[in-house]
């Protein structure tokens, strides 16, 4: 339905978005994930028509939206700071979009009432928005964005301004409401947990481009490159030079490592990064490859498991593994990684 095609935009002379393309289909919540400053909000504002792209186009059902002013696009946008109108009460805020469609008063009232019920705030109609708590404001902002039945809903870090517990509660509620409304949505956040819990599809924005897109679990199992793995904190990353392609062997500070690759393997001589997931470390092994020996320098109890830091050699940062039982600090230890569990990644930007 929505297609974003090759959008370019710069900010204060620096390129911010460089040829961003993606699309959003019916009934789909797409999450735009990226560190702050990656241009996520700008992208939303371009889709809403609040800003002009310097290159590229935005299409709705294959028709260009260029030249169509914001107020005629019938999109919904929920702002990070909610942007509730301070001079209007809760009901008047929610009614605003309906009023702009010149709907009859009874219909407006009925829909506002329904919206208030949906967000669990019936009875708040005449409250001042300035007197609401952060969570209540967030819900009113959502109701206001949804009330006019937008063709597309965009949410700009909707939970960003809330504290942690509230964020989890409202995140669930948001998921329910988005699911029930069946409106296609673009959800912008820098918080990966939020993104995983809400997204049907995830788009990772890095340096002005979408670096990887797909279902949330794909990012875990098949990170596209070293930067993606680092962004999601997937595990220990060790750089090295490819020695042979089949079998894939990489020379690193840990020694010669046998690895696997879910794309085309890099050619010998190329630099690559290896991902060792902490949970996949094995303590016992009959194999003679991929053996890492080190000394326990620290350990932290993390609920069910212990995160153990190993000092392997001075050239490497601490190597983190997850173990079911505690060890003594200073103890020497050898762990093994099966070659199929060492993922060879393209060096990221």
């Amino acid at each position: 339905m929505l297609s974003v095609i090759n959008i370019d935009k710069s900010y204060e002379g620096q390129p911010l978005l460089k040829g961003v393309s993606f699309s959003v289909d019916e009934n789909e919540t797409v999450c735009l994930l990226g560190p702050s400053g990656s241009g996520k909000s700008t992208l939303l504002r371009i889709i809403a028509g609040l800003e002009e792209p310097e290159g590229g186009d935005v299409h709705w059902k294959h028709a260009s939206l260029a030249g169509i002013p914001t107020h005629k696009r019938r999109f919904g946008l929920m702002f990070q700071d909610y942007a509730l109108f301070p001079h209007r009460n809760v009901a008047e805020n929610i009614a605003f979009g309906l009023k702009m469609q010149n709907l009859p008063a009874d219909e407006i009232n009925a829909r506002v009432e329904h919206a208030l019920e949906t967000i669990g705030m019936a009875g708040f109609a005449h409250r001042k928005v300035t007197e609401l708590s952060g969570g209540e404001q967030q819900r009113v902002a959502l109701a206001r964005a949804l009330a006019p039945n937008p063709r597309l809903l965009m949410l700009d870090e909707p939970l960003g301004a809330l504290d942690r517990t509230l964020r989890e509660d409202l995140g669930q509620e948001l998921r329910r409401i988005l699911h029930e409304s069946k409106i296609p949505a673009i959800y912008v956040t820098h918080d990966q947990e939020e993104a995983f819990s809400l997204a049907d599809r995830l788009l990772l924005l890095h340096q002005g481009a979408i670096i990887q897109g797909g279902r949330p679990h794909e990012f875990f199992h098949h990170p596209r490159n070293e930067w993606v793995a680092r962004f999601f904190g997937l595990g220990n990353l060790v750089e090295g030079t490819v020695v042979s392609r089949t079998p894939l062997q990489v020379e690193t500070a840990l020694g010669l490592i046998h690895a696997s690759c879910d794309r085309q393997s890099p050619a010998p001589g190329q630099r690559a990064t290896l991902l060792f997931r902490p949970s996949q470390a094995q303590l016992t092994s009959v194999e003679e490859v991929n053996l890492l020996a080190g000394r326990v320098s620290d350990q932290v109890f993390q609920g069910e498991k212990y995160q153990v830091s190993l000092t392997i050699n001075d050239r490497l940062p601490e190597f983190k593994i997850l173990l079911p039982n505690p060890l003594a600090i200073g103890e020497r230890l050898q762990v093994h990684y099966p070659p199929s569990d060492v993922l060879c990644l393209e060096n990221g930007a």
Partner: peptide, 27 residues
């Protein structure tokens, strides 16, 4: 004035004139 309020009003379907009348002027 918070510029986002005007943006919010535009996204909700208010023309520039309506935005001025309903959002900017009252504030």
């Amino acid at each position: 004035q918070n510029i986002r309020l005007q943006h919010a009003s535009q996204v909700l379907g208010a023309s520039p004139w309506h935005t001025f009348k309903e959002i900017t002027l009252p504030q």
